[in-house]
Structure formats: C-alpha cells, structure tokens
Amino acid sequence: MKKIAALLTLITLAFSCSSDDDNQPNNVPQNVNATFNFSHNWDGISVTSTNFNTIQYINANGEEMSIEKLRHLISNVTFHKSNGETIVIDGYNLIDVTNDSGLVYAPDIDIPTGSYENVSFTFGFNNDDNYNNNYPDLNSASWNVPDMMGGGYHYMQLEGKFINDADVEIGYAYHTIRAVNLTNAPDLLFQDTFFIVDLGAVNVSNNISFNIEMNIAEWFKNPNQWNLNILNNMLMPNFDAQVMMYENGQNAFSLGSISQ
C-alpha cells in the first residue's frame, strides 16, 4: 500500500508539473527527452536484417558482397551550447542490426529546450570509457577485445561474403577496434580510432528524435578504396587496416532528419 501511495503521489506530482508547464512562458527552458534512431543504407538503399545473407551490394573496388552481421557501438551523445556548456549523456548503445536491437536509443536524461550549436556522439568508445570499465551487457554480447591486444571493446563488427578475384565466394570480417601495433608485444603501440560524429545545430523545442543514417558503403570507399581480396579477415591485429577503417568511417554517418 505504501508503494502505491508513493506512486500516486508521484503521478499527482507529474500531473501537476505538466499542467504548470502549460502555463509557463515559452522562454523558460523545459526538460524534454531525446531519442536516437539508427538506420543503415548502402549508398542510399535501405539495409535491414531482411536484406542480409544475399550477395547484392557492390563496393567501390567492384567486389560483389553481402552482409551477414552488423553491430556497432556509439557513446557519449553530447549537446553543445553556444556558451561552451555541454550536456553529456554518459552512456553507450550497442546497435545490433542482425537482431534488430538497439536501433532506437532513448537515454534516460532530460535535455532542456533551447538552441544548441551542435549535437555529437562518439563512434566506439573514447579510451577512458573503453578501458576503465567492465560492462556486463557488452561482455555478455561477446563484444570484448582480447587482453593481449590491450582489452576494451569492439567498435564495429561487419561480416559477410564477397566474390573474390578468382570468382570464389569467401567470408570477410570487418571489425573495428582501437588500432594496436603488436610488433613488439607485450609492448603495445596504440593509435586512437574512435571518432566524433557531429550532427550539427538544432533548436530543441519539444521531445526530439534524431534519425541517424550509416552508409555502409562508405567503409569501403573514401579515402581508402578497400580491396577485400587483400583485406578480408584477421583485421583486428592489422594496425594499418584499422587506421584505414578509421579514415573511411569519417563519412559513414549522417543526420537523416529530426522530428519533434
């Protein structure tokens, strides 16, 4: 009964708050929710799990290919005000296209209405988030990077098949992690490969959703035309390949639309 009383009180409060809001002048910021929807395409053609497992895409290098798995992680969505203040959503979201999960990220945080000069997120994890934490949900999803490569987590796993130069269908596993040079292991040399994606300025007036697009073809295109015949597997310990993936990823994300 206590619980129910508490619930009732809460609901009454919420109820009264929201009616107060209606009477407030427009210039007093209110708190709203932000939702991030992730969709994927191949040069503009929508890609969902229903399009998986069929060779039907042609990459910049001319290889015909399919997608069998796609998972990637974003973190630290940040709202930037023009006065330099930021609101950082301290958290992450694993987008699993194969299983249609994580396609909608609705972090539990209040965003004050108003204008922001930029909204951004991190592709992957920054180093602090990557190494100084143990995330049970990501461990359960086997998202880890081996300790002998510095540990931490994957940023993306893209897998499928392609037709190679000898006309044979073979697998590829395009996995992105923080670039690590293992030549002098156990002394590891790293280069950062997470990156910030800017969605641009936005005026938040109500609950808002951002529709974010990833063009998968970009990972194979620009500035490095990707040759799957050479780079198809064992890419995690390949330092140079990781740096190229990082470069190609810069143009993979874009803001499709905003609704509020």
């Binding site: 461990n139 086997s142 996995h175 064992m234």
Partner: peptide, 18 residues
C-alpha cells in the same frame, strides 16, 4: 584462442570476460 590470426575462437565461444 584469442588470436584472430590463429584460433580466433573467442568471437563465438566467449572470453575471460564472458
């Protein structure tokens, strides 16, 4: 087990954190 160029078992069969 954990080396992508050798066994590469960990992508399907867990790892010390799983």
């Amino acid at each position: 087990f954990m080396d992508e160029t050798k066994g590469d078992c960990f992508h399907c069969h867990g790892n010390p954190n799983n």
